[in-house]
């Protein structure tokens, strides 16, 4: 097995090529541009630099329908622009991989600083109901592995899968092992072989049905069941148990790397498939008196965890892109004291 020193974004590009990427459309944005830079040099990938992120995601919708495994990468502002078409791709059931390397927002924010502000946007960003599969690795090796998983999950669920990263993990250099993970084959027949109609309208058997509520109910229920079924294959989380602690610390992405330093005082739970939320958390959480979610936003995932567990959750927001262990430790001490 070869070892390689790679940057997070390079690892995503390398893994994407190995997972069978044929077509990439993107628009330059800090801190995701390196993926585009890396892919233009690949012979097996058609790379298109589009005029904006909306065009990028629509180009890969087209290419994916035409039979090519397709991906785009962006950051928060671009991800916001893509939202309509992400919902569209869910409705038309198109396998895509969307990489979102997060930076501080809202708006232009702090382009070179890491954040985790797009957590809820992944799940609720587009209008209507859809059930995306979202992965959020925290190391270069994991970015490499979960790029494979994202491609596989996309093919299996016929839906756009989101691979989250942040400018910290994506710009980190680490040594990884170049493993050839298994790759799922394309099942969707390419365009130009039949008479199907792909539409964003509520539909049944390739036919738009815009005035029958039953058809819509059935469609959404089918989407939900399908996403749940596929996500069961990727029940991925990391749990570091500390028998002496009755506080469970939940963290993911860049911040979870800082949380490792606290494992002598707390149990640590790190979701990797952050949506749909891994149900195992319910079971794990039972043993703990206090659940603390720390994240680099104002408490987005804490809300989701609260909804899942039906109990009070303490949230530690780390804003501004700076991860300061002293700041985190003092906030945790305060929670410990109050208890």
């Amino acid at each position: 097995m070869t070892k390689k020193l790679l940057q997070g974004n390079q690892a995503i590009a390398l893994a994407a090529v190995k997972a069978g990427l044929n077509f990439y459309a993107g628009y330059p944005i800090t801190p995701a541009s390196e993926i585009l830079h890396e892919l233009v040099n690949q012979k097996t990938v058609k790379v298109l630099q589009m005029e904006d992120e909306i065009a990028s995601i629509n180009a890969i919708i087209g290419s994916s329908l035409a039979g090519a495994k397709s991906m785009t990468a962006t950051s928060g502002p671009g991800f916001s622009l893509m939202q309509e078409s992400i919902g569209h791709a869910h409705m038309m059931e198109i396998p895509l991989v969307i990489v979102n390397v997060q930076r501080v927002g809202p708006s232009t924010g702090m382009p070179t600083f890491p954040a985790q502000g797009d957590i809820l946007q992944c799940k609720y960003g587009s209008h209507g109901d859809y059930f995306p599969i979202v992965f959020y690795p925290n190391s270069v090796a994991e970015l490499y592995e979960y790029t494979f998983n994202a491609f596989n999950a996309a093919e299996e669920s016929l839906s756009p899968v989101i691979l989250l990263s942040d400018s910290y993990v994506s710009h980190l250099y680490e040594t990884i092992e170049e493993v050839d993970y298994p790759v799922s084959k394309r099942t969707l027949a390419p365009l130009g072989t039949s008479n199907r109609h792909f539409t964003g309208l509520t539909h049944e058997n390739s036919k738009p049905m815009t005035s029958d509520p039953e058809v819509h109910k059935k469609l959404i229920k089918r989407f939900e069941a399908k996403q749940k079924k596929v996500s069961r294959k990727y029940n991925d989380y990391e749990f570091i148990e500390n028998k002496n602690s009755d506080i469970l610390l939940i963290a993911f992405g860049a911040l979870s790397r800082a949380a490792y330093d606290l494992k002598d005082d707390f149990s640590i739970y790190r979701p990797i498939r952050i949506f749909p939320i891994v149900e195992k958390l319910k079971e794990i959480a039972k043993k703990y008196k206090e659940i603390v979610v720390m994240e680099m936003n104002a408490g987005q995932y804490a809300n989701e965890v609260e909804r899942l567990l039906h109990r009070e959750i303490k949230s530690i927001p780390i804003l501004g892109g700076k991860i300061d262990l002293n700041e985190i430790a003092s906030k945790l001490r305060r929670i410990k004291r109050k208890k």
């Binding site: 077509f23 629509n58 890969i60 087209g62 290419s63 329908l65 039979g67």
Partner: peptide, 9 residues
Amino acid sequence: PVAEGIKLA
């Protein structure tokens, strides 16, 4: 853009 994606793929 969708048409372009189809054609180029």
